[in-house]
Design a protein around this nucleic acid. Structure first.
Lengths: 211, 211, 211, 211
DNA sequence: AATGAATGAGCCTTCATTCAT
DNA sequence: GATGAATGAAGGCTCATTCAT
């Protein structure tokens, strides 16, 4: 607000650093002092700009979702004119890349995964604004593949099967890094993994559709 | 640590309570005082018996794995005489029940899931002693289904697909609780979910086997 | 401070609000932010107009005395033509009403009482400009009742006896509120209390005058 | 508890220092650091022994009352065989000395006066346990002097008149120190002041008794 | 003249750890 | 061998104050 072309405003810097630190350490382990230190601002800044550490966390989480969706937009997948199979493949590819993005901005999904695995009070709002929409989208695609007669519970379980395969790469990343690093070694490996999940899921869904 | 045959009540109580508390709160949020208080021992006991909070955590984690495997033994699944499809179904059922056991003993898997999602220095040893064996077992079953000609990378990805579907119920438990609680409402619901995963995976593996 | 004739809204508002807030909370508990917020001025205004929180306090205290004397003028009591007994009764009534005025303007005496009970550096000036004149007035009245031969120390002690009875209602207000609320319940109760103090004191002074 | 003949236990030292510091500075202005520093204990000790600064304050206040009553016992005054006038004189003497005790232990009454002038949550209990008993005692003496037919409200106002005269020396101590220091210069001056209050009050009560 | 952003000192409290017993 | 007392480092937060505008 004060500087125009110079370094980013303190508020924004704080938000980005908060995503980093919370992603690395979790809410409790992260300290306000560390965040402020990395953002090159005063210790009191967190309380000045965000009122409390907790409020900063909530905003950082929301920011992480916004960034993740901005960098990996779902636009093409929303096109209902495309074949469901193709949309599913695109969705999985998009989602997996989002999860495994190791760039500076890949921390977003780490923070999000953390929040899901060990929820705070901030989770409920996140589910409403960020997770439900993705679920709705995938449910629609699955229903298209399984046919209108598919049971609701079956659709839900298929949804979880697909998300689970993707999230495995996030939540169990530490294990994959150690045992199967070649599966996520580079961009093309990740793409291959995404294609595997798509084929695996489409194969299963096809069988379910027959019944 | 030092004692071999003698029963050590305080030591053991501390270990069990530590699993509970670390599972509920995570490493940082858990306090030594809370653990000692629940175990009815002196505040200094953790440092006396385990040298530090961190060391207690590592031992609690190892203990959780031992207990989880003791309570949900893989014996039947190890029987190579059974059809691979049946063994896979049994494995998934066993694994999912282990993950979703909400009894006093279900805390073990919660602690383990926490460690995987947010690894500490303790993880490496855990992978060697507890995770690799399960992976080896499942790899063997998958190879049997896919046939000897299956590519190693494909087998690994199928392994992750299956584990991912199961772990979804653990790592994203907070979301499932909110959006699809009926999928894990009771024992029979869990069983149904396990069967879904088995069918989903077998359907996919069958298609992969054809290629 | 600098302006002489021009009305200075922000400055004055700050002063009035400061009396309120300091009276309610005391010097330390009161915050500059709260004062500025209630006065609808910038946080920096206190330092801008008054140099520091402490200086604002001193000015607020002086302002409170000015206001208290403006609202409860001693004019009639100054008339030496009236009988001393009547002047004493009027003085006590005036003083007690001043002390117990719970209206917006009663905060003045609360702030003053606070400063006396827990003096700051600001007290000395206050004594000179505001307290001594009242003491001088009451001493004169007492001397008139006791006669010219009255010892100085006796006069002083009688002075304190009379002030003490009045101030009891201010300094121990918290206790009276709890134990004898009916003594200050309303205007007429306060008047009755004032008359009691006057009678009590006149009876005692009469006996002292005989000796 | 650990040391026997050595310096006083930390708990007791903390309590005494707390009375000192709270009396000097008030609750808010006083800092835990200052208290611990003067008591030669660790900063964490207040929380260790008393759970919080607030709890320490409450205990210090109760301790101040205990000490004040221990050093200035009311025993003789409780003897209903003595003439009421003598008992009143003794009560006032006892009370005034208690209020003006400037020894290390005179801080007790300063702390108490502070709490009355600027009450915290701790006041209610203090009123019940320490103030009401004194009021009851004085009410009984006054009733004896005024006669059984005395109105309740009159008795209460006389009570406040007497307490007010005494408390003047406490609450307005800062003014008396500056304007009339000879009234409280030494032990005999205080005694003379006490006798003045007794005579003043007895004279007034005698007149009230006639009516 | 007046402000809003930003600061740094200091507050109470918590906690894992240590030490004398 | 085992404990209860005590500690010091560090945490989040508040607040009067300052500074560039």
């Amino acid at each position: 607000m004060t500087q125009s072309t110079a370094v980013e405003p303190a508020f924004d810097r704080l938000l980005q650093v908060a995503v980093e630190v919370f992603a690395e350490c979790g809410f409790r382990e992260a300290t306000v002092r560390e965040i402020c230190s990395r953002a090159n601002v005063n210790v009191a800044s967190v309380n000045y700009y965000f009122r409390s550490k907790e409020a900063l966390y909530a905003q950082a989480l929301a920011f992480a979702f916004r960034e993740a969706n901005r960098l990996y937009p779902l636009d093409a997948i929303l096109d209902k004119g495309l074949p469901a199979e193709q949309r599913l493949t695109m969705f999985i590819g998009n989602f997996l890349h989002k999860l495994l993005d190791d760039s500076h901005l890949g921390l977003h999904s780490k923070l999000i995964a953390r929040e899901i695995a060990d929820p705070t009070k901030a989770l409920d709002e996140i589910i409403e604004t960020a997770i439900v929409p993705q679920f709705v989208l995938l449910v629609e695609i699955i229903q298209q593949i399984l046919g209108a007669s598919a049971e609701k519970l079956v659709v839900q379980r298929c949804l979880l099967s697909i998300f689970g395969q993707c999230l495995m790469f996030k939540h169990s990343r530490s294990i994959i890094d150690r045992l199967y690093p070649e599966l996520i070694a580079d961009e093309s490996a990740i793409q291959a993994s995404a294609e595997h999940i798509a084929q695996f899921s489409l194969a299963a869904l096809a069988r379910f559709a027959q019944q």
